[in-house]
Design a protein around this nucleic acid. Structure first.
Lengths: 141, 141
DNA sequence: GCTTGCCTTAAAGTGCGCTTTAACGCTTAG
DNA sequence: CTAAGCGTTAAAGCGCACTTTAAGGCAAGC
């Protein structure tokens, strides 16, 4: 039960050229070919691509994915290194969470100020000044 | 009370060339020059740059920042449009929050599986297979 | 037999957000 | 007087992650 690249692409919502590119970059070892040289994706490959997509969407670089693949190819003895990579990535995720929370805070603040202006509760001296005022209130925590 | 580009750069932890680049791209209107043509940053400019940095770090594109600046320059009548942009950005922040949560889940799952392998609770058939097993467990929610 | 539709590859192109370079000017300290 | 240290500009370069293009191969249906 193997998938063509088109099927893989459809199931993953990921363009076929991108999948080929990942393989070329060494992120997808062990993909077999049929007698015509066409790639045959197994469910495990789709799962791995999905995980990579998840990690990529949250800031993991391809070079890091590649290091993980290479370590995996070297066997279980590299598990400590892989754990270290994942733990570092996890820290980055926490940083991003804080960044998101801050941005959410700032955007809510700016929205609230716009409402104030709309309801005439705040006099906006000039367009740019209004812009600036927003900062001062939303940035200083 | 104005700042030189060097002072601005130091206070913001943002390279001076980046600040110049932002001005060139129209993200920083109204920056005055002294008699030598040197930029004079006011506190409001620093605050605005800081806010832009916050938004940029969480995925807002420069083109969106530029649209907001242009709208702000057109006065209070554009506040509804600016609100719309911010509300859309807010939705994107929520998407990113979900992506982060998913990634965090997946990484914790993978870490747990590595621990299992290390403690011999799981037999890893091959390096790549181990890699794949992780996916199946961490992805299917 | 020929078009359609899938696949292949290598290589070039794209978009974004900086970052670096090069060439130059002003001002202050030694 | 000159070197250090700040500023300026336009233009080129870079890193990343794709994306597109070009040229071709195989197989099924009309």
């Amino acid at each position: 039960m193997a998938f063509s690249i088109k099927e893989a692409s459809e199931r993953l919502g990921c363009p076929a050229p991108t999948i080929r590119y990942y393989e070329k970059e060494g992120l997808l070892p062990y993909i077999q070919r049929d007698k015509h040289g066409n790639r045959q994706f197994e469910q495990e490959h789709l799962d791995w691509i999905r995980l990579m997509t998840c990690f990529r969407a949250t800031g993991m670089k391809m070079s890091v994915l590649k290091r993980m693949v290479n370590l995996a190819l070297d066997g279980d003895s590299t598990i400590p290194q892989r754990k270290a990579i994942l733990n570092q990535y996890k820290e980055e995720l926490f940083v991003r969470q804080r960044e998101l929370a801050e941005a959410l805070d700032a955007v809510n603040n700016k929205l609230a100020i716009y409402e104030d202006i709309e309801k005439g509760r705040v006099v906006s001296e000039s367009a740019m000044l209004a812009q600036m005022e927003v900062q001062q209130q939303s940035i200083k925590r």
